[in-house]
Design a protein around this nucleic acid. Structure first.
Lengths: 149, 149
DNA sequence: GCAGTTTAGTTGAACTCTCATATACTTTGG
DNA sequence: CCAAAGTATATGAGAGTTCAACTAAACTGC
């Protein structure tokens, strides 16, 4: 009954696993080494920094930063300890919390960004041809549309 | 100085992050739910099962299963607790250890495999056209060749 | 209005991962 | 040979992640 993978599919799958893991590891190592933060924190800071007034409801932030609510809740607690974010109650909905990026948090992000972008280029963009990048974009969009619903 | 990402690159990058994370999460959730193991353990069991006599030196196993030696060491310790693997000293090199897949470990892998393959198809192969799969294979191969050296 | 349900968010425990360090064995160079 | 350097692996602490509760507030329908 099981539709096993044939040899080609096996190879594709293992290359996919290896490649994506290598990219994620490269990112994480670079950020941890040069900016002292894991990639999750970086995504959260980016999401906040792009929001008007650099503030966002926790659940919205979880969606934007692509992490579970629990993960976000723990992460923001750590960001608060570092003085990079703070939480305020939401006036409209008293269940809610609003995460706010502090000046220091913004500065930490600004300091981390150039090295991070360099690593993104090194580990992905510089490796691929323009055509491959177009294909990758399309592929990832398709995966995203299917799995995200 | 920093070569920032333009809008297209930004979109590609974010789609890449989202898509790869979605696939990895889907895998991990399925394996954890249906087989009670994280994806790392699955990779280790697979690597062992494909080796002659289902045994392998720790460092070789780390390469095949694409994980750090430390991670492997901890993981195999857990696998031993479950009775899925055991370690034997290496006769040729007394520093070395050989991880051996037990019958129970093989059975656990055999039980987990069908559901896992289904999930792999659902979350990647069924989403893409044959052409996209060829492109993805090429892309991942290129990334792997560049970052793996 | 008020029982029942959904939504927002937090929390603690269990587990995995990483990093730095430690241990034991092997190889190498003089 | 033997000290020095290198290799194979283990280990412990610290940090992040997940899962399953749990609290609290907001809807929903009768």
């Amino acid at each position: 009954m099981t539709r096993w993978l044939d040899d080609d599919e096996q190879r594709t799958w293992r290359d996919f696993l290896a490649a994506t893991q290598l990219v994620h590891e490269a990112l994480d190592r670079q950020l941890q080494r040069d900016a002292g933060m894991p990639h999750t924190y970086y995504m959260i800071l980016v999401a906040l920094s792009e929001s008007p007034e650099r503030r966002m409801r926790m659940s919205e932030l979880a969606r934007r930063a692509q992490c579970s609510q629990s993960r976000l809740s723990h992460a923001v607690a750590r960001l608060e300890e570092r003085g990079w974010a703070r939480r305020e109650p939401c006036p409209q909905d008293r269940r809610g919390n609003i995460a706010v990026l502090t000046e220091q948090g913004f500065d930490a992000l600004a300091a981390a960004a150039p090295g991070h972008v360099e690593e993104v280029r090194r580990s992905l963009f510089d490796v691929l041809t323009p055509e491959q990048l177009r294909a990758l974009s399309e592929i990832c969009g398709a995966v995203r549309n299917t799995l995200e619903g």
